[in-house]
Design a protein around this nucleic acid. Structure first.
Lengths: 234, 234
DNA sequence: CGGATTATTTTGTCTATACAAAATAGTTCT
DNA sequence: AGAACTATTTTGTATAGACAAAATAATCCG
């Protein structure tokens, strides 16, 4: 255990135990350096890392304060479907239902904020967990931005997995909501027509250009998005 | 703009533009220090911050590599209800439906992993957006861990908001899923009995002790969890 | 050839120091 | 009293150097 680790965990303990409540001013770098018998730089690194994580707030001349848990938001992981299914201990299987490449139609252009003269691929896929339909995916891919996709065999590997492993992204946007299964999804997922399903919609960009737009509808009874995490403030 | 910022944005640009693809080995600290005419520590700070964010991976002797977007997970914010309603431009109103303090029953002990001789408060609250019921909250609070709660008037301020502003937490766990409204929730939310609703369950700990357990059921048609974010790997 | 040992490279941590930048507090002047 | 200036405190950024730790590469030996 390094000195850095010791100082960090010492400070975090004081904060999370409530001994240093939100708003409390913590000793300045000079005092901490003296206390831990180390240089100011060592303390500075710990404190600026904690500030980057949003656990404390720092202002020149004023000092360093335990951040008010203005935590109007926390952080959750949205997992890759294959990884999620396998983490649940099920056998994962993937099925490509539909794939079509075309010049972007007007609807595609609107959906993906594309200028004309782009090509897109539309996918419909089914993800299985232990012979049970688990999720139905409806995806649009901007192939003009990702030409390597044309040489890919999406009959074998799901487009989401391939994208994750080969195409870096700079921004993404998610929308998560509950919906009653529409007839098409209900049939694909083997659920009754109005069953409650979880829908995850994701759009992914790279450098201002939308790469993919995907809507995934999950079998309501089978799936929960789970998350375990620690506080952040940013 | 500091040197730190310039080096960081230079490296990030190369990565996100695809010029340095996943797996690419980036120059070592010595070379980068020479390139930017600065000391190794300056480069080291940038690189270790990028590594903490998961954008690059570093191994002693081997070097520094652009992280494979093994991004089997991404990150989403779960907002505070009041903040969310107001962000949507609606008028927020809160209503306390039920509050009862008691010694932890067997069920409470199981639910919150408590040893006996703890006290709990059970809440049922309704969150309104523009005169429309928006979310129904069912909460259990470990008051033995948070005795200040006893002096609080939860008729005015929602327990979730008060907790966020006064009680730091060290860990939390979420579960998000879709469910058909049960009779009680359907009545409270003014929806039909089998309407699809989004349910968010959260448990929050401080130092190994569970502070609160809350189950929030959202009006399906009114609510979407939205998230905008940038990549992480950890 | 295979396995153990040694050397080398690269990152990780830490120090002591220096000066800059920001924000507050204090002082002076009108 | 209020505005403008000045001093002081605290964090922010950067440097050059030192040694440690980890992992790979090279060497040696049976």
């Amino acid at each position: 255990m390094t000195l850095n680790d010791r100082i960090r965990s010492d400070i975090e303990t004081r904060i999370f135990s409530g001994r240093w409540p939100p708003g409390h001013r913590i000793p300045n770098e000079h005092e901490l350096a003296e206390k831990y018998a180390c240089s100011r730089m060592t303390v500075n690194k710990v404190l600026s890392d904690l500030a980057a994580k949003g656990i404390i707030e720092r202002r020149r001349k004023a000092g360093t304060f335990v951040a008010k848990p203005t935590v109007q938001s926390a952080v959750l992981r949205i997992p890759d479907i294959k990884a999620e299914v396998e983490a649940l201990g099920y056998l994962y299987r993937y099925e490509l239902l539909f794939l079509k490449r075309r010049h972007a139609t007007r609807a595609d252009q609107d959906l993906m904020q594309l200028s004309p003269q782009h090509d897109v691929i539309e996918f419909r896929c089914l993800h299985w967990a232990n012979q049970q339909p688990f999720a139905h995916e409806h995806r649009f891919l901007n192939v003009t931005a990702v030409p390597q996709a044309l040489e890919q065999d999406f009959g074998v590997e799901p487009p989401g997995t391939w994208l994750r492993n080969h195409v870096p992204w700079s921004e993404a946007e998610h929308s998560i909501f509950a919906e009653e299964a529409d007839p098409e999804a209900a049939q694909a997922l083997h659920v009754t027509k109005s069953a409650a399903c979880l829908v995850v919609q994701r759009r992914t960009w790279r450098g201002g250009e939308m790469i993919t737009h995907v809507r995934t509808i999950f079998h309501g009874a089978l799936y929960r998005l789970n998350a375990h995490f620690t506080p952040t403030n940013d």
